[in-house]
Write a protein that binds this DNA or RNA. Structure first.
Lengths: 138, 138
DNA sequence: TAAATTTTGCAACAATGTTGCATTAGTGTA
DNA sequence: TACACTAATGCAACATTGTTGCAAAATTTA
């Protein structure tokens, strides 16, 4: 698993640095999505705030993680289990935000049904954010 | 129409003030959703930044407007044509963000299909954000 | 119109995000 | 392994966004 992180960084033509490894591991260990603040807390004072911002930005650009639209408009990032390591398959995600524990889940295996748009509207990406109670809080 | 704004405020037990009237009118005139910054620009230096924040917050609480989750995580607010004036029917909205002109549309009449969730997950609200090209930019 | 209530604007603050630049760390090559 | 080269980090300073308390002003109620 440790080797996996290094490998993933190299496949994306990124230098393998401490911060990148630690942040990637954090994503891999965590169940749901992470906000910038979560990462800052977890890594303590180890990394500069700016480094975390830049690392997240880089990961998004490389398609390693993606942002999740949330109704409370806090920025959240998630690593998609199967797809992201392979490339840019970020369309048609379903995300679930639990009102109870606040966790954001990336439901990779839930399919988004086709939605009929008005005349002249052309969809390129569909984001679905469902809120409610997760299996632990139900 | 001017009377409508005043009336809407009164129905929601809110004092009828300049800022509330102007901001409501702005929403009614605008095609799509508005960000805080849009409102600040449109109203010039007429109102304090804080007043705008508080007005939007009040409107959200009263169910006059609602927030839209966006993938770029800028907070946007929209007035829903038919429903919001009557109460709190904010479930199952479809929102459309145009990559061309940046407008966010509130597609009130598009129905959200049911989405099958994993065991134990219970949905209370579903937000769908579709991005692509709108009928003016297609 | 006067008293009671609500809203506004100001000031100060907190949180979040960005940029430039010198220092440090990582990479490729001999 | 040591070197030069490139990329990433940390710091400082700044910009933007959002929040809170409180006195002044506007709105509502009687």
């Amino acid at each position: 698993m440790l080797y996996g992180v290094t490998d993933l960084l190299k496949r994306n033509q990124l230098s393998v640095t401490d911060s990148r490894k630690k942040i990637l591991e954090l994503f891999m260990r965590s169940d749901g999505a992470l906000a910038h603040a979560d990462i800052e807390h977890h890594s303590g004072t180890e990394f500069d705030r700016v480094t975390i911002y830049r690392t997240l930005q880089t990961f998004v650009e490389k398609g390693i993680i993606h942002t999740i639209p949330t109704s409370d408009n806090s920025v959240r990032y998630a690593l998609c289990k199967d797809e992201c390591s392979e490339g840019h398959h970020h369309d048609d995600h379903v995300h679930f935000m639990c009102d109870g524990c606040g966790t954001t889940y990336c439901l990779d295996h839930v399919t988004v049904p086709a939605i009929a748009l008005p005349q002249g509207f052309l969809a390129s990406q569909t984001d679905v954010v469902i809120s409610g109670k997760c299996d632990k809080c139900g």
